[in-house]
Design a protein around this nucleic acid. Sequence first.
DNA 1: CTGAAAGCGCTAACAC
DNA 2: GTGTTAGCGCTTTCAG
Lengths: 337, 337
Amino acid sequence: MKMTIKDVARMANVSISTVSRVINNSQTVNSEIRKRVLDVLEATQFRPNAIARTLVKNNTSLIGVLLPEIKNNVFDNMVEGINQVAHLYGFDVIIALSGGDADSEIHYYNMFREMQASGIIISVDGIRDALYALIEAAGIPCILVGRDFRDKSIPSVHVDNITAAFEAVTYLIQQGHQDIAMLRGAAGDISVGSQRFLGYEQALKAAHLPVRPERVLESGFSVEDGVTSMRKLYHSGPLPSAVFCATDRIAIGAMNFLTENGVKIPEQVSFLGFDDIDMATIIRPKLSTVRYSASELGMVAARNLIKLIKGEELAAVHWSISHQLEIRDSSVKHGVS
Amino acid sequence: MKMTIKDVARMANVSISTVSRVINNSQTVNSEIRKRVLDVLEATQFRPNAIARTLVKNNTSLIGVLLPEIKNNVFDNMVEGINQVAHLYGFDVIIALSGGDADSEIHYYNMFREMQASGIIISVDGIRDALYALIEAAGIPCILVGRDFRDKSIPSVHVDNITAAFEAVTYLIQQGHQDIAMLRGAAGDISVGSQRFLGYEQALKAAHLPVRPERVLESGFSVEDGVTSMRKLYHSGPLPSAVFCATDRIAIGAMNFLTENGVKIPEQVSFLGFDDIDMATIIRPKLSTVRYSASELGMVAARNLIKLIKGEELAAVHWSISHQLEIRDSSVKHGVS
DNA sequence: CTGAAAGCGCTAACAC
DNA sequence: GTGTTAGCGCTTTCAG
């Protein structure tokens, strides 16, 4: 069943180089012979061994994408963006899922490397030292996506989380809210949640409002985490008048919890999320949120990775893509009912 | 930057075979020499070229997974299942996204093949003839996931869509509903939507209820498609008392449309979905649906693929995994308010 | 226990 | 325009 060029050559009564030439269209071949080869190729459904080809040509047209998970909508759109521009330039993209596990990240990074991938796009919430060192040591074109990695030297594409969060919270303040809680994601100084928290903090300070620790809840980034955090907040005293959430998923969980406990949204509590996932417009009330284009994130990453692969000069090392406030039904002026 | 075993050998003052032996632990090497090599390996962060290794060993431990998209929650859980058992057996899994495009499917299938993947898992809504022929010709271990492919000879894993839909609609009938509409997905005899429609039809017939074409709406499988279909139904006369949807996403769109038009769910119209995606429990009312484990789908697929790869005998060619009705808040007895 | 050498399937000089 | 041949980087006999 498994054939080689040699087999094809024998069947078509030509040399292996001739077969290689017609497969790759690399040189003109006598049209009659060419046809003979083509026929065998068709009849046998032969496919050249890319492994062998890669070995001699010493380059692939493969882009590896390393993701923690795909449950998150954002990744899906991002991959779509990557796919789109990669295909434009003739690159194939393959994806590996790390599950957020550090060992797995290293494992798959090395797998891409061993597969001789031309470039790698990594989306991690916070990059760990070991991976970081590996990327630098390996020297394969690589772009980080997601968080603001401006403190690092590896190129990255991201949303300006701090500014976006600052603007979101400032909007809430302008709407008259003074007691604004934040449901941030995981703690630690490496995560998206931390950057969005920074923006929250700056906005409050700019408005001379106190940052009260008891109004800042730490958790994961999931719907369930939103429920948990909100439950804590709910049982710890009077409700804030607005809640800023590090992700839409957190916001959705939190809103569900409140609704089930008879709290009216947005009349009693306003909500603002981040990411603008599909669900944001599906739930009721529709979620006000910070929108950005995840597919643009992917496209910018892919485009620059390809430049890197081709050895072209990069215009910058870190790119941020734009964001907008998308005000919908989960937030209103303070005091409105 | 890019090194070979040769470089390592030179640096450690040994032969390349010795280096290979310590990398692969394939033969005992004098512990002192071994250490010398290990040190160089560590210092240089050297990684062997998997391409070359694969070429000589003529096998990879790679499983390729071909998906139409990842936006759909079901795929995410499925991949998780695949990952889990693949890792158990020492396989790496890589994913490619076809976007549902026929050419892309063939392209990526061939890519996996050229990469010498040991096996391939393909999730397609309906498999097209060209791909099918290719799979048969290529002779690489392959498993289809998703639809019921019992009419085909390529092994498959799936939910028994017909039976599940039959049971779902029968439940609705037992609840007193007589006028039950169906929002099926895409038409054509190859899709999941068609099988679920078959179950709907059988249930009505078994209860001696008429299958009225004007109560069956065709569309895609998305939330937006649900809105569109429901709008049509809404403007075409009296509302049915219950609606069975081919996917949860359709159901969610349809429910949103109705809610926005002042229709009470489930008091006026009961809803039943299919898939039990995350959103089903997040929206209000919580969606009654047919539940199955997508990760089980993935696990069964991976397990059997690995058997195929190892040349072991398969207990069957087609497996269906179990399903349950998950009754929540979107459906009630007919006439209850 | 270690090194030399053959060869995996393919491409790309290089001859003819 | 076609065939012969030398590797690509690695593993694996086969000698020593």
